[in-house]
Each structure stands twice: as C-alpha cells, then as structure tokens.
Amino acid sequence: MPAITLAGKQFDVDENGFLQDPAQWSDEVALGLAQTEGIEKLTDEHWKVVRYLREYYMKFHVAPSIRMLCKQTGLPLKQIYQLFPSGPAKGACKLAGMPKPTGCV
C-alpha cells in the first residue's frame, strides 16, 4: 500500500493519493494533501468547501451531491473547479480526507 509523508508524518493512501483512514485527517494533513494536488495556498473558499465536505462525510459517510455542495457553499461549479482543478469529486474530496467517490462518476 502506498504511503505519503504529510506534515512530517506517514499516512497510508490509496493509488490515487486519498487517505485510507479518514479519521487521520486534520487541517495540517489537508494542507499537505493540497500540495499533492498542486494547490499552493488554501483560501477561505477552499476551506469552506473542505469543511462542508468533511462535515457531510462525518454525518453521512459519503460525499454530498455536487449540486448540494454548490448550493451549501454558495460557490458555482465553475469556481469549485478553479479552486480544485481536478474537480469536486477528486481534488476537493481528497483534501477533505475522505475516500474517492467512485461509481458512475
């Protein structure tokens, strides 16, 4: 199983660099994961998305629908793509320390 070092600590990740254990997540880890996504700096808007995803995931054990994400964060999809170039289901979920949404997505 691949591992990466974030904020000086080792983490197991899957083939796509998603945390294996969502419980290990922290703000520092999110910052580290941002680097792997090529995101230099996390703005308030980044955090808004990440925190919303995180909150939803902790409650429901799955990512929210894209529409809900946009609505609840007040950010249009285009802007989410600007914040997370690989998209809400990949980049944003990775930073939120949750598993990669798979299925027909």
Binding site: K59, F60, H61, V62, P64, P101, T102, G103, C104, V105
Partner: peptide, 10 residues
Amino acid sequence: GNNIGIPEAA
C-alpha cells in the same frame, strides 16, 4: 445498495 455508496440517511 448502490455504486456510489450512498447510505439510506444520505
């Protein structure tokens, strides 16, 4: 129950 893994509550 589904491919994405959406549990009943969600």
